[in-house]
């Protein structure tokens, strides 16, 4: 097995050109488990974790979006201005592994693996994020998240491409991320729900994780609830009883899930969990003052 450790993006593309079948490595939190378990025996690896162009994040000139680069770690998502702009992403990042894993694991890795249980993916779905792919010579293309993730652990990335990052539209409004697992930390999601309110566009977006082959959106439920909420510059409110509204919303969101039975849970429980979490997420968004962190 050859391991290339490029120090720049150009070097990375050159390394990839030299070994077209190379597996890309960022934090290693997925790849190393697969290697250790013998599930994957890459003949070549291109390690991207020392490529400076893949670190950090930046706000667009108009301030309406943020480019989160693929080397951004979960720990970095949890704190500071980025966490203030995207609280659901920060909450999702906090649910990943233990501190050491969060120091190593990255957004690019989460996207590249494209596991149905990838913790940041429902948030990216709810934000309508796009994925930026780069190729040698500065070529780039940008795909909506649902054109990037095309199946269970399958993406539209071409072998010569590197995930540069994800572009996240800035949404003004409450955000929530809830993840159900059978342990209180360091656990693979049995089901997860991301909820993003856009006060300016008067929309609600819901991303679901671990209840389908890829992250799902609950578009019918999103439209239904948006029609029943009042959006004002400070938050959302409902005319009727929030509990009743949220209950129905939860039921509709669960209807959008496509869970399976596996060793981690059952489809029946997962659908139930989605319903409960969506309801709670909406109620928290309706009363942001009681939202804990």
């Amino acid at each position: 097995m050859t391991v290339a450790v490029p120090r720049s993006l150009d070097e990375a593309f050159a390394a990839l050109a030299a070994e077209p079948d190379a597996h890309l490595l960022m934090g290693g939190t997925d790849l190393m488990v697969e290697v250790n378990y013998g599930h994957r025996r890459p003949t070549a690896v291109v390690s991207l974790d020392r490529v400076p162009e893949l670190r950090g994040w930046e706000r667009s000139a108009d301030g309406r979006s943020v480019l989160v680069r693929s080397g951004l770690t979960y720990t970095e998502m949890e704190i500071g201005e980025l966490a203030e702009s995207f609280p659901a992403l920060a909450q999702a990042a906090r649910t990943v592994g233990g501190p050491q894993i969060r120091n190593a694991g990255t957004l690019g890795g989460n996207l590249g693996t494209a596991s149905p249980a990838g913790d940041t993916l429902p948030v990216l779905a709810a934000l309508d994020a796009t994925v930026v792919l780069g190729a040698a010579g500065g070529a780039q293309r940008e795909l909506p998240w649902d054109e990037f993730i095309v199946g269970v652990k399958r993406t539209a990335r071409e072998p010569h491409e590197i995930i540069l990052g994800a572009r996240l539209p800035v949404r003004r409004g409450p955000q929530e991320f809830l993840k159900v697992g059978t342990r209180n930390a360091m656990v693979i999601a049995v089901a997860s729900v991301a909820l993003v309110v856009d006060l300016d566009a008067a929309t609600v977006a819901v991303g679901l994780g671990s209840v389908g082959p890829a992250p799902l959106r609950a578009r019918e439920a999103e439209r239904w609830i948006a029609e029943r909420l009042a959006f004002d510059p400070l938050g959302i409110s409902s005319d009727g009883d929030p509990e009743t509204l949220a209950e129905e919303f939860g039921r509709m969101v669960a209807g959008a899930s496509r869970p399976i039975d596996d060793h981690r849970s059952s489809a029946v429980y997962r659908r139930h969990a989605v319903s409960v979490c969506a309801r709670r997420a909406l109620l928290r968004a309706l009363s942001p003052q009681v939202v804990g962190t």
Partner: peptide, 16 residues
Amino acid sequence: SPMMALPGGAGRTADA
């Protein structure tokens, strides 16, 4: 209790 100390822990699922 902080959210982290409720059932579900880091997953922030609990409604206290």
